[in-house]
Structures are given as structure tokens and as C-alpha cells.
Write a protein that binds this DNA or RNA. Structure first.
Lengths: 85, 85
DNA sequence: GATCTACGCTATCGAAACCGTAGCGGGAGG
DNA sequence: CCTCCCGCTACGGTTTCGATAGCGTAGATC
């Protein structure tokens, strides 16, 4: 948990996962979806999430959540619900 | 949601909330619970969470989650559950 | 009243993370 | 060959973080 809080406690970290909820996105599309993250930071976040087994890279498709990453979605959905009040 | 992801996407941000799940903690206790966050950063995080209405300051008691903050706990609990696999 | 202690908090400064921009190499299509 | 879009990297300036020291206050104790 402490580890996850550390990884997710970086700029854009959760946002990247959040934007991938709709499905696979390529690098540039993901960049725009996040609304202006710098490519170097996005690159780092993607590496970090890939190391954590949350995101995977698909040739000619871009990036998408792994099965494990998908299971993280309910957490974010609940989080999103929380923000609505 | 984007706003929350922004606030929580800072070092120690969620960790601070997580450590407050056990109840009120004073500044120093919270600092130790987090395992060595610098006081200046902790100070900043507490201000940010207070502005978001997640944390409140109680005289002679320290800091604790607000009612709104308590409602954030299930999210973190689910997050913690996710990390266990 | 003087001292001691624990508290919240601030100051400083070097290190690390981040941002914006530019641009590279590579592959697909014309 | 040329063009276009792709993932990705390099660079320099700005922001954020981290470690440490220490201030001012308030309560307790002598």
C-alpha cells in the first residue's frame, strides 16, 4: 500500500490510468487526453505503470490497462463518485 | 475529478489521508506515521487538504478527517485491497 | 518566576522532479 | 524520394521536495 501510494503520488500518475479507462490510446492521444503533460513525464509514468503491471504496450495500438490495471478501475470510479459531492 | 487527481498526485498527499484513518493525530505524530516526511511538505499537504475540506484542525488534538474526508476512506480501503494481489 | 519540554510551524538551500519546446529516427503511404 | 505521423529523447529553466535547524508559544514542574 505504502508503495502504491508512493507511485501514485506523482504528477499525472493516476490521471494517466484514468484516461486509459476508455481503452487503448497511443502516446500522442494519451498526451492530449491528459491535457498537456510533457512527453518526458508521460514516458516515465508509462514505464512506472508498466513495471507495476498496470499498463501494457500493444504494438500498433498504443497503451492500455492490463487485467490487473482494469481491476484498478473500480477504485477510480469510486473516487470519481466521491468527487461529485 | 481532474482537480482531485491533481491534488492527490503530489508526494505524500494520499499517504497523509491514509495515516489519518486511525483518528486524529498531531503534527509530529502524523509526521512519524508517514515515515519521515519533511515538515514543510506536510504543512503544505495539510493546507491543501484543509482547503479541499478533507482534513480539519482541532485545537489541542491535531488533525483529523472531516466527515467528507471519512467518506474518502472506503476508496482508500478498496485501493489497499487492490494492492494485496 | 524561572526552567523545561513538547508543540506547530518557518527558513534555508541543495537536490530532484517537472514543464515546454524542439527535434530525432523509423515506418507507412503516396 | 517525399511526406506524414508515430514513439521517444535532449535540453534548459522553473517548480517542488527533502533535510536540517531553529523560532515562538503554551503547559507543566520546580
Amino acid at each position: 500500500m505504502a508503495r502504491f501510494l508512493e507511485v501514485s503520488g506523482r504528477r499525472w500518475a493516476l490521471r494517466v490510468v484514468w484516461e486509459l479507462r476508455v481503452g487503448a490510446l497511443n502516446f500522442r492521444a494519451l498526451r492530449e487526453a491528459c491535457g498537456g503533460i510533457s512527453p518526458s513525464v508521460l514516458q516515465r509514468r508509462l514505464h512506472e505503470w508498466r513495471e507495476s503491471g498496470v499498463v501494457e504496450k500493444i504494438p500498433r495500438l498504443g497503451y492500455r490497462l492490463t487485467a490487473r490495471g482494469e481491476r484498478l478501475f473500480p477504485v477510480l470510479a469510486q473516487m470519481e463518485k466521491w468527487t461529485r459531492r
